[in-house]
């Protein structure tokens, strides 16, 4: 939470899990993990694993919530009670309520919602194991799930976390780094046009550091997006 820790997090240029500052953890991505959903995906960044499922576009009930000229998107970000060391009591809390909102706003610009008035696209993100950077992992899974669901999209959404520990900028914070960081920043972009759809920063940074963090995030989002696209191409074109 933005405090410089007493523990040294980078020793001889290596982070607690052996990575260099600019390294992302090993990423694995799978599609179609929930057979009942219109689209779904499971994404892991190291030990952090998110499952995302998309239902819809489907008619929105209750009817008074419907918008006559556009569809809407609803999201739920949720952490499983067993996903963290100290059990998290089930159900929404203040943190997950805020994250559900920012995840929705991060995904919304990528979808042609105006194509289906009165309908909703429901995106559910479950964090089944948490080791830092859960919201960005969830967004990466959700974007894959939206494509798999056949939602009409302008672009994908790709997200990554960038932070500062021991006065060094790092990519893809793990849980220990997240808790002891001087700053952490979550960024999501639409890679085709480099539009920012999510930006949350806390900790203390100068303006120059913020701008460096953002270019760092952009570069890494593009790399992660290549992996997302490769997976989709393999599935849908057999390439």
């Amino acid at each position: 939470m933005g405090k410089k820790s007493d523990v040294q997090l980078i020793v001889d240029g290596k982070r607690t899990d052996g990575r260099a500052p600019e390294d992302v953890r090993p990423i694995s991505m799978r599609l179609d993990v929930v057979s009942r959903a219109n689209g779904s995906a499971e994404v892991s960044f190291g030990k952090t694993t998110a499952v995302a499922a998309v239902y819809g576009p489907r008619t929105l009930f209750p009817r008074f919530m419907q918008e006559s000229d556009t569809g809407i998107i609803r999201t739920r970000y949720n952490m499983a009670p067993f996903s963290v060391v100290d059990r998290k009591s089930p159900g929404p809390d203040r943190r997950s309520t805020e994250i559900s909102k920012v995840v929705r706003l991060a995904l919304e610009p990528s979808i042609f919602l105006e194509d289906f008035p009165k309908a909703t696209i429901d995106v559910y993100v479950e964090i089944i194991q948490a080791d830092g950077s859960t919201r960005v992992t969830g967004i990466n899974a959700a974007s894959l799930a939206l494509v798999a669901a056949g939602a009409p999209m302008k672009d994908m959404v790709t997200a990554v976390s960038v932070g500062k520990i021991d006065d060094t900028l790092i990519v893809d914070l793990n849980g220990t780094e997240d808790q002891n960081s001087q700053s952490d920043v979550a960024v999501a972009i639409m890679p085709r046009t480099d539009r920012i759809t999510l930006l949350q920063m806390d900790g203390v940074l100068t303006k120059d550091e913020v701008m460096t963090v953002l270019s760092f995030a952009k570069e890494n989002c593009h790399k992660i997006n290549e992996q997302q696209k490769k997976l989709l191409l393999e599935k849908y074109t057999g390439e």
Partner: peptide
């Protein structure tokens, strides 16, 4: 800077930030 948050339905360019 000690906190930032993008809000709203649309997007921002890096130069906007």
């Amino acid at each position: 800077i000690c906190a930032m948050q993008k809000q709203g339905h649309g997007t921002l360019e890096f130069s906007d930030v």
